[in-house]
Nucleic acid binder design. Structure first.
Ligand SMILES: Nc1ccn([C@H]2C[C@H](O)[C@@H](COP(=O)(O)OP(=O)(O)OP(=O)(O)O)O2)c(=O)n1
Ligand SMILES: [Mg+2]
Ligand SMILES: [Mg+2]
Length: 969
DNA sequence: ATCCTCCCCTAC
DNA sequence: TAAGGTAGGGGAGGAT
């Protein structure tokens, strides 16, 4: 505090702060040179791989904001977006009704705005839409009829000329005057001077009297610009030197695609697109329907994915730091804690330009695109750029408008990863209580270090970071997390700030509430509604009233934060509670096949992430964004304004298996009755996670396996016996022998459940294939293609009972048969053939387990046939999942399963009873699984207690005695 | 009261 | 062109 500790410090351009010894960007040797970016911006991240049901719930919600990409600087962007949406809405609503018989003023006119204009591009866009015209975000000679331009910088004239090719280049006042006159005026008097002067000899009215169909293709006469080359350019430019902008459209005569374009397209479209639709009108560039690897490519390039998944990578890299939790001193308030918050300055920019000193004092931003008309988002802007108002999250076109000389640099995710590594290595070296906030931001609890001067420590750490990474960091030092973070904010860039307790009140008094972490757009708006703008204002409200208005916790948080109170402890990373993946960009489906493909690759991704986190999940949610209007969103390939829909399925047994996940996802998706063309976003999330390595790698002693085996409605007694022996011996040779010796009946292929087959482990499928003399695989693929022909199996009715019999009868016979084939065999109305008696000593002695016959006779045959192979499975859990797969698949094939559940439940009850009586060996895990199954199937797990007339405490006691652990149901 | 589920909000 | 993800906190409201 001895040194300036400062205050609100707006977006300070210079670093104030105490220990600025390590000031400035002069960056000592940075040893960061390896891993140069590969050429053309392949800054790809790893798509780090890194989630099942029938208690299906669903919900719908309307979301008006396209997404809360809330960020400090996005105000303008959001405002613009709103403007667009507003005008779009107006346009679409007025386009129908409107002025009755009269044609709108700008009917047939389509403008492209170049550079800065008064009125603004947005306003012009609004006027156009309002008055029946069109507005193009990207130049297209095919669509654009007029280029609007206020004041062309000389250097740009040639550029403009090169793609305008005789299109009228007109001042924006033309539009205003047209509106004022309520008719389309000649644009000639409004022609831009620079262009007009060189185009005096051009045909005049003929070009524009009407819509674009009449535009004459001519070349503008070449007037060499001072200091400018391009004779060559102009002479042939009209064909060749079109800017990339012009590259995407076909030439003006709509019918004949040019040869060069044809070849370019074929280059780009290395994808095998089905020739299905006519001239695939809807196939835009980067949509899900075009790229089979869309998910991978997308995540590889997504900055938000990068920062969103960084935490998981950090978990692996610094596993030590996920120590228990900070030893909590309950009276944290009486102890004087010292917290350092440290955050890299304009991280993504700093890393990329650290070896480019010539850019250090220039406005620079990281962005995928340098297109001044583009809707690519700024990821990070350096401080010179921020002086112009450039912020993370705004469109590059808005950034360029705010700061015309803004330098755009591409992402380099590898480098971010590496610098973050160095950053955390240094932090861990200096402090053992490190809470990772993000890839560029951490909190240190240095209370226990008893450092005599925290500011020196902070400056030491910052110096080391700067020396090691070549990038600067800023730090805030104070008594709690909140204050340290606020201090960092005022220390940026490249500074540090100690905020002593006695300065807190002054510091907070004028601070806008929005600055407090946890107060975002929504809360800020709410508070604004009550005329609360600063923390000082906020302090005038009582805790009770805040809690009444904002909820218990939120109210308390507000009350505390505006007083600088924050009782949170610096903690280690906690285990994750959910895993998921969303894609809300580039999602454009042409047909169900696109959609299914995409969903399946999303499943792969999620499964990979589950594995990466070492967890399995029991609850699965599929979210779908459905567009609200047919208009393309303001943001290129964005999701725009959407309604959100979601379905959730919860299953009894946790899984991370991609096959199961895919089946569940198909099931989930079938619940949505939606035109796939309306889908703008998809998300798949897994919750109710369990650790994956928690499963006993139980060998022989797997009673679920024995349950399965003994439950199989075996045809041959000895066969089952063999299998049981094998299971006990775990003898592979014996197994093999047993298998080859066994004289099992092979069910006819037609009885096999292809969905189950597809989900079998490959080895097993291969084995089965041999059983059927190699014909199984072709049989399967044939079935598959039949399925595809019919469309999606997911839209099929799930059982015969859902089909109107009279409708069915009117269909041609082959189609009838097709339909019957596609339906679950077990739902056929014919009674199942009765099966041989169950083995003595099985769980369900007495009553044969009807449900098995009903729901999966083919499944269980498979299981039985190959149960010796199962014994080679790695763990108890593998087998359990197979069981679950059976249940799951039968559910998917048969939604109206209710009748069957009672039998399953009875079996589970019996199983549990025998577990508890120790008639069957088991363990806690399995008992819990049983209860979960019960709960899932019957809705309540307590039923068991009633059926067996036992109280929960007593049951828990027994279980505790026999299995040595506590039972929780 | 307490739990659970379905969201919204927030931060990076 | 462009890559609008991810996960936790917590409020509202229904089930228990
Ligand atoms: N809307 C956002 C916010 C952040 N980021 C990325 C880029 C940032 O560099 C990085 C770190 O976020 P910060 O909030 O720390 O922002 P900066 O480090 O860029 O700037 P500052 O100096 O304010 O910390 O996360 C992003 O891509 N989009
Ligand atoms: Mg930062
Ligand atoms: Mg940060």
């Amino acid at each position: 505090m001895s040194l300036d500790s400062s205050h609100p410090a707006k977006s300070g351009s210079n670093s104030k702060r105490s220990f600025n010894s390590t000031n400035s960007n002069n960056t000592g040797g940075n040893n960061y040179n390896k891993k140069k970016r590969k050429k053309d911006g392949d800054s790809g991240q790893q798509t780090l791989g890194m989630a099942w049901g029938s208690n299906s719930r669903s919900s719908t919600r309307s979301s008006f904001r396209s997404a809360p990409f809330s960020d400090v600087g996005s105000y303008m962007a959001v405002k613009n977006r709103k403007l667009h949406e507003q005008f779009d809405a107006e346009a679409s609503s007025s386009s129908h009704g409107g002025s009755g018989s009269k044609k709108p003023v700008f009917y047939g006119v389509s403008i492209f705005v170049d550079g800065y204009t008064v009125p603004s591009t947005q306003e012009l866009r609004g006027y156009m839409l309002k008055h029946g015209g069109r507005f193009e975000n990207y130049f297209s000679r095919q669509r654009v009829t007029h280029i609007i331009c206020s004041n062309l910088p000389g250097s740009k004239v040639k550029n403009l000329r090169s793609f305008s090719r005789g299109l009228p280049v007109v001042k924006p006042t033309w539009i205003l005057d047209c509106i004022a006159a309520d008719k389309l005026l000649s644009w000639v008097p409004y022609q831009l001077d620079q262009v007009a002067s060189e185009a005096n000899n051009q045909p005049k009215l003929s070009t524009f009297l009407d819509s674009r169909n009449n535009i004459l293709p001519f070349n503008p006469p070449n007037i060499p610009m001072p200091s400018d080359d391009n004779i060559s350019e102009v002479s042939d430019s009209c064909e060749k030197t079109d800017t990339p902008l012009a590259e995407t459209q076909s030439k003006s005569s709509p019918c004949e695609p040019s040869a060069s374009e044809g070849s370019r397209c074929s280059d780009i479209q290395n994808i095998t697109e089905l020739p299905s639709t006519v001239s695939g009108s809807s196939n835009k560039g980067h949509s899900t329907s075009l790229d089979p690897n869309f998910v991978e490519t997308y995540f590889k390039n997504s900055r938000l994915h990068f920062i969103g998944t960084w935490r998981n990578r950090y978990r692996k890299r610094f596993p030590i730091s996920s120590k228990p939790s900070t030893s909590i001193n309950p009276s944290s308030s009486c102890q004087k804690n010292t917290i350092i918050h440290i955050d890299m300055d304009c991280f993504f920019v700093s890393v990329v330009i650290k070896n480019r000193p010539e850019l250090w004092d220039k406005p620079v931003a990281v962005c995928h695109s340098d297109n001044p008309r583009g809707t690519s988002e700024i990821s990070s802007a350096n401080y010179p750029a921020r002086d112009h108002g450039v912020r993370a999250g705004i469109f590059v076109r808005d950034a360029k408008a705010l700061c015309p000389h803004l330098v755009i640099v591409p992402y380099n995710f590898e480098a971010y990863e590496e610098v973050a590594d160095q950053f955390y290595t240094i932090l861990h070296k200096h402090c053992n209580k490190v809470q990772a906030m993000s890839c560029d931001e951490a909190i240190l609890d240095i209370t226990d270090l008893e450092v005599e001067n925290p500011e020196i420590l902070a400056s030491l750490i910052r110096k080391e970071i700067s020396d090691t990474t070549g990038c600067t960091a800023s730090a805030g030092i104070s008594g709690n997390i909140l204050l340290a973070r606020l201090a960092t904010r005022s220390a940026k860039p490249n500074g540090q700030c100690y905020l002593p307790p006695e300065k807190v009140n002054d510091f907070l008094e004028e601070l806008p509430v929005k600055v407090l972490p946890g107060i975002g757009r929504a809360l800020d708006e709410k508070l604004k509604g009550r005329n609360i703008k600063t923390c000082g204002d906020l302090r005038t409200l009582s805790k009770e009233s805040l809690q009444k208005d904002f909820g218990q916790k939120t109210g308390e948080m507000l009350w505390n934060y505006c007083r600088g109170i924050d009782n949170r402890l610096v903690g280690m990373i906690q285990e994750s509670k959910s895993v998921g993946a969303d894609v809300n960009w580039g999602v454009r489906f042409n047909d169900l096949k696109d959609t299914q493909n995409f969903l399946m690759s999303l499943c792969k991704e999620v499964s990979l992430r589950l594995h990466g986190c070492g967890v399995r999940g029991r609850s699965f949610t599929l979210k779908i964004k459905k567009r609200k209007t047919d208009e393309e969103p303001v943001k290129y390939m964005g999701c725009g304004d959407c309604d959100n829909f979601s379905h959730t399925i919860t299953v009894p047994m946790a899984t991370d298996d991609v096959d199961v996940l895919q089946r569940i996802t198909k099931q989930l998706f079938s619940h949505f009755h939606i035109d796939v063309k309306d889908i703008r976003g998809v998300g798949l999330h897994v919750t109710k996670l369990e650790s994956a390595d928690n499963f006993t790698q139980g060998n022989e002693r797997s009673s679920i396996r024995s349950w399965l085996v003994s439950s199989s409605t075996s045809i041959e007694k000895e066969n089952v016996n063999n299998i049981n022996i094998n299971l006990k011996n775990q003898n592979d040779d014996h197994l093999h022998q047993s298998r080859s010796n066994s004289t099992m009946d092979v069910p006819p292929m037609s009885e096999l459940d292809s969905e189950v087959l597809e989900n079998l482990p490959p080895e097993i499928l291969a084995e089965m294939n041999e059983f059927y003399g190699g014909k199984l695989k072709s049989f399967l693929s044939k079935r598959k293609s039949e399925n595809i022909e019919v469309g999606s199996s997911s839209i099929l009715p799930s059982s015969l009972s859902q089909i109107d019999a009279s409708v069915l009868q009117e269909l041609p016979e082959e189609i009838q048969n097709d339909i019957i084939d596609l339906l679950p065999p077990h739902r056929n109305l014919e009674p199942e053939p009765s099966l041989p008696d169950p083995q003595p000593g099985q769980l369900w002695v007495g009553d044969p387990p009807n449900w098995i016959q009903k729901f999966s006779s083919s499944n269980l045959q498979i299981l039985r046939l190959f149960s010796d192979t199962y014994s080679q499975l790695k763990s108890n859990h593998d087998l359990s999942s197979l069981l679950l797969k059976c249940i799951s698949s039968s559910e998917i094939l048969c939604n109206d399963f209710n009748d069957d559940y009672d039998d399953v439940i009875s079996c589970l009850h019996e199983l549990l009873k025998q577990y508890i009586d120790l008639k069957i060996d088991s363990d806690l895990e399995e008992i819990h699984t049983c209860f979960r199954l019960l709960k899932r199937l019957s809705g309540k797990s307590e039923i068991f207690l009633q059926v067996y007339n036992i109280t929960l405490p007593r049951l828990q006691m027994i279980v505790s005695e026999k299995y040595g652990g506590s039972l929780h149901i």
